[in-house]
């Protein structure tokens, strides 16, 4: 398909192909979450073998994130990758959480949106993405610091879930469990938001691809259902939303990647992208599920996995502080008000 989400420079197209092949080798995520550590280690190796952990270019990272979302590789594996990239942004050593190849040591990305540092403990709402497997958590405190904490010794208020649909849970981590910290910048946050947003978009694209493929072959009333405008126009609308968000993402990528760009510009462009992802990606994955008819509602069909993955990633970009349309609107209205005041002041003088 000749589309923005698929149109890439040759080197990124090669990278995307390599990710697709590695994902095919590693296999999709599990339906019931009972993945053995050995399998996760194998999958991590499959991705490490093609050098994904060392990818440091942001454009390449979002390409990888998009493909991993589309291919539905196990969530714990993509979270680990996202966490390693985050550590690199923050200048924290990856060895802190890096696997030695024989042992699975993933990390969970979490947040303390309203985090409170109490005496001896750090408590707050932490996202429960993949923490069933994790032994570390990446957290943000209110003072602009990013923290890496060991999860051993942490206490949770409810059992672990495998996806963000389960909602956040409260965790209390002993202060002694914090093993490293680093100052986070606007650009660090923007990079995290972009990678999470592109992974969400990749998951939405995977769901839509499946729905389009199905609409071409599924026949009812003697015709492929994709020939009926009730289906084809709905899928075309979803494709439009996907491409619009992707265009916004590529623009944000260029702003964030430009050296010397003020942090506020990078944050605003990333936020615009995340506003669109947050609104569109779930709708695309939901409607793609619906387009499959009853089969899309079956546990064995992956439609619900893409939908869950979308929300996982949205939880991540929200944690990074992006995607709130009300804040984006306030920003725009304030800019118009400021410009108007400037104009009227100029006229008065």
């Amino acid at each position: 398909m000749l589309t923005i989400t698929r149109r890439r420079p040759a080197e990124l197209a090669d990278l995307a192909d390599a990710v697709t092949r590695a994902c095919a080798e590693a296999g999709r995520c599990e339906l019931d979450g009972g993945t053995a550590t050995a399998q996760l280690t194998d999958r991590t190796r499959a991705l490490r073998a093609i050098g994904l952990e060392d990818v440091d270019d942001l454009g390449a990272q979002v390409t990888v994130a998009f493909e991993l979302g589309r291919q539905l590789i196990c969530r714990a594996v993509t979270l680990r990758l996202q966490a390693l990239w985050r550590l690199a942004d923050l200048g924290l050593p990856a060895e802190l959480v890096s696997s030695d190849g024989s042992q699975w040591r993933p990390v969970v990305l979490g947040g303390t949106g309203q985090g409170v540092v109490a005496v001896g403990t750090l408590a707050g709402q932490v996202l429960v993405i993949g923490d069933a497997y994790a032994d570390h958590a990446l957290l943000d405190d209110d003072g602009g610091q990013a923290l890496l904490a060991r999860l051993s010794g942490a206490s949770f208020d409810k059992p672990a879930g495998l996806d963000a649909c389960a909602g956040p849970r409260r965790v209390t981590i002993p202060a002694a469990a914090i093993v490293a910290s680093g100052q986070r910048s606007a650009h660090d946050q923007a990079r995290l938001g972009l990678r999470a947003g592109f992974e969400a978009l990749g998951a939405a694209a995977g769901a839509l691809d499946a729905a389009v493929d199905y609409a071409r072959v599924r026949r009812q009333f003697g015709q492929p259902i994709g020939s009926y405008q009730g289906i084809s126009h709905a899928l075309a609308r979803l494709h439009l939303e996907l491409e619009v968000a992707a265009a916004s993402g590529h623009h944000a990528l260029s702003v964030v990647a430009r050296a010397g760009e003020p942090g506020a510009e990078a944050l605003a462009a990333t936020d615009d992208f995340c506003v669109l992802v947050r609104r569109s990606a779930p709708v695309i994955a939901e409607q793609a599920l619906h387009a499959h008819g009853a089969i899309g509602f079956c546990w064995e069909h992956p439609a619900h996995l893409w939908l869950r993955r979308v929300w996982d990633c949205i939880a991540l970009l929200s944690w990074a502080g992006f995607g709130d349309a009300t804040k984006a609107g306030e920003r725009h209205i304030a800019a118009v008000a400021t410009r108007r005041d400037l104009l009227s002041n100029r006229e008065e003088h």
Partner: peptide, 24 residues
């Protein structure tokens, strides 16, 4: 500051995305 603001935020993000789409 009312619920209208959220809609403005979405329009703003889509307007800028439309420009990016045009450039591509």
């Amino acid at each position: 500051g009312t619920t209208v603001t959220e809609q403005v935020g979405v329009f703003a993000a889509r307007t800028r995305a439309m420009r990016a789409l045009g450039q591509l």
